[in-house]
Design a protein around this nucleic acid. Structure first.
Length: 852
RNA sequence: GGGCGGUUAGCUCAGUUGGCUAGAGCGCGUCUUUGACGUAGACGAGGUCAUAGGUUCGAAUCCUAUACCGCCCACCA
């Protein structure tokens, strides 16, 4: 294979990926001598397409995996596919709707089978896309969230929780979406501030007490009045003391309900009297429990009024019932006023329908004991968080956690393995024969619970399920996922893992922020601003997407996608490609008969120093998950150091073996960040064997520090000369002269080459003429005639002024006795040295100005 | 109501225990077809680090307050 002029990613990426996959490079070795390094991929939706957020996820996880693989760890990146219970169900239900059907036209088992085939028709897309992104994951270990091993574990966990009395079936209020007809966990509800109205409604007393004939309640939900079973006042409220125990007429009905005393009633709010609707309000439910009140459901699963509301209202929507009730109350003179208020209303995160708190019998996990252990572990610092503050946020959440409703009323999910005695509704048993709708146990008939598990109940067990066949890979090394999943997923994984395995699920947590569109707005289909990662890949290459995504992005922070960063990254790939092309060319034209790597010139010591520094620095950055800085660092090494200086220098020296060796090191260090281009180069270079992905991380070079420093000095001299050549028109036609300067003498050719000077002669002190450059302690002259000094003179004056200011600053610092006594000695010393240097330079420059 | 984050160059953002002249990419200006790369090379311009105080020898960095912008959590009917 030969190097083309520009790197065309599409031409190589699929083949390179296939090569890796075929070679088994993604598989863990399970070599006991190697440290395991494990990342479990947050499973993408099996039947969906990847979005740009997945691009970031894969980039981060794969960078880590490849880095530690090169570092010699037994790296294992475990892919997954999510049945995405609710998400997929919503898509499928829409399809049913388009066909004029509803879920009620089929049995649960039918629906499950239908969705199963639907998902499997779509499946595979996502997996191809993961390959396009370069994910070096072990495909043989892919787990689908409905695989038997997942279901088995979920069932045994459920059973254990049940046995430990941490699971209970309870009739409680649940967050219910009346469109999707399913319940949600608290954290799945989206709360929005909304403009609403607060109505005052009079409830007449059955028997007036003293002069009081009625109480007035305030409500934002008058239609729930049909479900009222009490009105409450605060026990300390003197105004209503005498009324407690009396009955009021419930308007629009023929019922009478009691006035009770409960702390829940806020004396400051409105009239201090509150209606109690235990079946439709969380607080009222609690009040109802305390006072043993009846719970009357007046809104059904379909969001319509139930028959409890009487035939005038039955079948109306909530909105209709509200309007109608208000009219009726007005007619009866019981509506006492209305005001505008802003309040927070829960919505379905998928369709935006207002969430109704409805009374349901569901399975709940008593999470408090689980949370307690998680808190202990977190407080003990057993799991490190990036960003660090997420740990505190999670602890705070866990400290206030409420029971977790794990029942969902959608057919697409893991069936709950529980059966109810048909003759005794309180008799529930655990049984995994979920394919049967009815079973017989001990002569009794049991009916299946038709609900399925909340997806997060299974996902929450993901780390130990997916690693079960390579147990030495658990606990996993790091859980990398979106910051929005802190409670929903990360918290639950920690709790369930401690409960089931007695161990943490992962040692580190890294949370990334959202990828926003270029304007910094959240991407959404409805806004039409969604960026498809695969399109970016085909346009700029997979490596460019990866590098572009990690650039300037820090943990937990939402950040805009930047095409310019992707382009800069593509350019880097092209740069490395062309560096390799040139090195290959030099190698071809300057063959060697051995592999000995020798350092023969200052620039070679210098590049070894630079590579070593980057190598060490990268290690630190990777340990701390500082991807953006790591990317910058390697970019800087390749572009600003290797290409701009070392390669230019080697055009003269052509140290073949060192060029080979240093290029290999560069490729290895860049590989985690840009796997495709580096592997493609590796496959193209004439002297490399095998595959880059299987190589090991480079060792440090041995080099001469003094020589490296001398080269650094040379780069400064050269830059300075170039600057003068550029700034003084015509100056570049004149030689650079020096006298009594070994560094210049030894590097005449190099300086000439890099400055494109006509020549670099050594002269005698008495012949010194032209511009005297004040660079360190060198005596360098650009031999230009006096008549083109003018421009330089202005520059020099400027320079002198600036130096003068710097000197004043330094002097002030040193004059302060506090600085001299309190600051570290080395720092003070350094300041002194700098000051001395600056002063010397200033004198030189001044003298020079005299000459002009 | 509680909590968390942000404010640094024209734009998007880095800046990890306080310490060289505050950095990058893009953009901008001038120059350059040098034996790989114009997806390039060379040189350069551009910042009172939101504001006001404080701590310190020294603050973009720590503390306090203010302003503006985000996000999360919460049952105020």
């Amino acid at each position: 294979m030969k190097f083309s002029k520009t790197y065309e990613p599409n031409q190589y990426e699929p083949d390179v990926y296939a090569l890796w996959e075929k070679s088994g490079a993604f598989k863990p070795s399970d070599d006991p001598k190697k440290d395991p390094y494990t990342i479990v991929m947050p499973p993408p939706n099996a039947n969906g397409n990847l979005h740009i957020g997945h691009g970031l996820t894969i980039a981060l996880e794969d960078i880590l995996t490849r880095y530690y693989r090169l570092k010699g760890k037994d790296a294992w990146y475990v892919p997954g596919a999510d049945h995405a219970g609710f998400e997929t169900w919503v898509v499928y239900e829409r399809k049913l709707e388009a066909e004029g059907k509803t879920r009620f036209d089929y049995s649960r088992d039918d629906l499950y089978n239908q969705v199963w085939s639907f998902v499997h028709e779509q499946r595979g897309n996502m997996e191809l896309q993961l390959r396009a992104l370069g994910a070096s994951c072990d495909w043989d270990s892919l787990t689908f969230t409905l695989d038997p091993k997942v279901i088995d574990t979920v069932y045994s966990t459920f059973q254990k929780l049940w046995k430990d009395k941490l699971i209970y079936r309870g009739e409680k209020l649940v967050n219910y979406c009346t469109k999707h007809q399913t319940a949600f966990a608290d954290i799945e509800v989206t709360h929005k501030e909304e403009q609403g109205k607060l109505w005052q409604i009079a409830y007449p007393l059955v028997n007036p007490v003293n002069d009081i004939t009625e109480v007035v309640v305030s409500t934002t939900r008058p239609e729930t009045l049909f479900g009222d079973t009490a009105v409450a006042v605060n026990p300390n409220d003197k105004r209503y003391e005498a009324l407690v125990g009396s009955l009021v007429e419930l308007p629009l009905t023929d019922r009478q309900i009691p006035i009770i005393a409960d702390e829940h009633a806020d004396m400051e709010f409105g009239t201090g009297v509150v209606k109690i609707t235990p079946a439709h309000d969380y607080d009222d439910f609690e009040v109802g429990q305390r006072h043993n009140l009846e719970k009357i459901t007046v809104i059904g699963n379909d969001g319509k009024m139930t028959k409890e509301t009487g035939f005038n209202y039955e079948g109306l929507t909530v909105e209709q019932a509200r309007t109608k009730a208000l009219e009726a109350l007005k007619t009866q003179g019981l509506l006492r006023g209305e005001e505008n208020i802003t309040h927070s209303v829960g919505h379905c995160y998928k369709c935006g329908t207002t969430i109704e708190p409805l009374l349901k019998e569901q399975w709940f996990v008593n999470v408090e004991p689980l949370a307690k252990r998680a808190i202990e572990v977190l407080k003990a610092g057993k799991i490190k968080f990036h960003p660090a503050n997420k740990k505190q946020v999670l602890i705070h959440y866990l400290e206030n956690i409420k029971d977790w409703n794990i029942s969902r009323q959608i057919p697409w999910g893991i069936p709950i393995p529980a059966f109810q005695n048909v003759d005794d509704p309180t008799d529930w048993i655990f049984d995994t024969r979920v394919k049967e709708t009815e079973i017989t146990v001990n002569g009794k008939t049991y009916k299946r619970d038709n609900d399925t598990f909340d997806t997060w109940f299974s996902s929450g067990q993901w780390p130990y399920i997916t690693t079960s066949e390579h147990p030495n890979h658990f606990p996993t090394s790091v859980m990398e996922t979106g910051a929005d999943l802190l409670f929903q997923w990360v918290g639950r994984m920690i709790m369930l893992s401690l409960y089931i395995t007695d161990d943490i699920p992962f040692k580190d947590v890294y949370m990334h922020g959202m990828v926003l569109d270029e304007k910094g707005q959240k991407m959404s289909k409805s806004k039409g601003n969604v960026i498809n990662p695969i399109e970016i890949v085909s346009k700029y290459g997979s490596d460019a997407l990866r590098l572009g995504l990690i650039a300037s992005r820090s943990a937990g922070v939402n950040q805009a996608f930047s095409t310019s960063k992707v382009m800069a990254s593509r350019n880097l790939c092209n740069k490395v490609w062309n560096i390799s092309r040139l090195v290959q060319d030099i190698v071809d034209n300057n063959p060697t008969d051995n592999d000995e790597v020798e350092i023969r010139n200052l620039g070679e010591d210098w590049i070894c120093e630079q590579i070593n520094q980057t190598n060490k620095q990268l290690g630190k950055l990777m340990e701390n998950y500082r991807f953006a800085e790591a990317g910058d660092l390697i970019y800087d090494l390749i572009w600003n150091k290797y290409a701009d200086w070392f390669v230019e220098t080697e055009k003269l020296w052509k140290n073949t073996n060192l060029l080979k060796s240093t290029l290999e090191q560069l490729l290895k260090m860049l590989h985690p960040f840009a796997p495709f281009v580096t592997e493609t180069i590796w496959q193209t270079l004439s002297w490399t064997d095998g595959m880059l992905i299987k190589e090991s991380w480079p060792e440090l070079y041995e080099y001469d520090q003094d020589k490296a420093d001398q080269y650094t000095e040379l780069t400064e001299i050269i830059t300075n000369i170039r600057s003068h050549y550029q700034n003084i028109p015509g100056a570049n036609n004149y030689p650079i002269a020096f006298h009594d300067d070994p560094l210049m003498y030894d590097n005449q050719l190099l300086i000439q080459h890099l400055t494109k000077s006509p020549c670099v002669p050594k002269i005698n002190a008495e012949d010194a003429a032209g511009l005297h450059l004040a660079i360190h302690n060198h005596n360098i002259y650009i031999q230009i005639p006096k008549n083109i000094h003018d421009k330089y003179k202005a520059n020099l004056e400027d320079h002198i002024l600036k130096m003068g200011q710097e000197i004043i600053t330094l002097e002030k610092r040193l004059e302060s006795p506090n600085y001299v006594t309190k600051a570290p000695k080395e720092l003070v010393e350094e300041t002194r040295r700098t000051l001395a240097d600056k002063k010397a330079l200033l004198e030189k420059a001044k003298a020079e100005l005299e000459l002009i």
